[in-house]
Nucleic acid binder design. Structure first.
Lengths: 83, 83
DNA sequence: GCACATTATGGTCCAGAGATCATATTTTGT
DNA sequence: ACAAAATATGATCTCTGGACCATAATGTGC
């Protein structure tokens, strides 16, 4: 359920996933978050490194949180992208 | 032990914390991560939104990982910055 | 197949991140 | 208090993310 992210692409996937789970269109998310639909599209597709703030905005709008943890407590739940 | 981050400042704190725990200087972290000492200083002090990629680089060098999680499972371990 | 909604692409403009340099300030050991 | 190390500041330059516009491509229901 939690999603490990090592690259911008991973973040994009996590965001898309959450958005779809909440049945929001990019446009709706755009309105909620203040980030443009076009930008969301690019971020979800991992087209290169977004800014932290942008990600925080999107996460806030999607009720996601970002956690920084020490690595290696055997994280196996990685990269089973469903959508 | 895990650190919730809502703002770039939070990320900066988490990074500084981890770096100090590993007894690294900014300069050493800079060498490891490929991010300049000056830039690390700014990020640790939260002087505005870094890029995702930069954070990933720093996290990798510090053995930290970024996890995206659904909010609210009663996260109480927040904001007890020790350093 | 069509209309409509959704998502992606592509261009311009502006602001700011990060490289890189020098230098100032702070911290720390002795 | 001093020297040395560590951190911060600050300036310039380049590059790119994101706002913003239009439009293309794709998906989805009927």
């Amino acid at each position: 359920m939690d999603q490990l992210a090592r690259t911008p692409k991973d973040i994009g996937h996590a965001i898309r996933r959450a958005r779809k789970q909440q049945k929001l269109s990019q446009q709706e998310l755009a309105t909620r978050s203040g980030i443009w639909q076009e930008t969301i599209s690019k971020i979800e597709n991992g087209s290169s490194g977004a800014r932290l703030e942008t990600i925080f905005d999107l996460c806030a709008a999607l009720d996601l949180e970002i956690v920084i943890a020490k690595r290696s407590q055997s994280n196996t739940d990685f990269l089973e992208d469903t959508l």
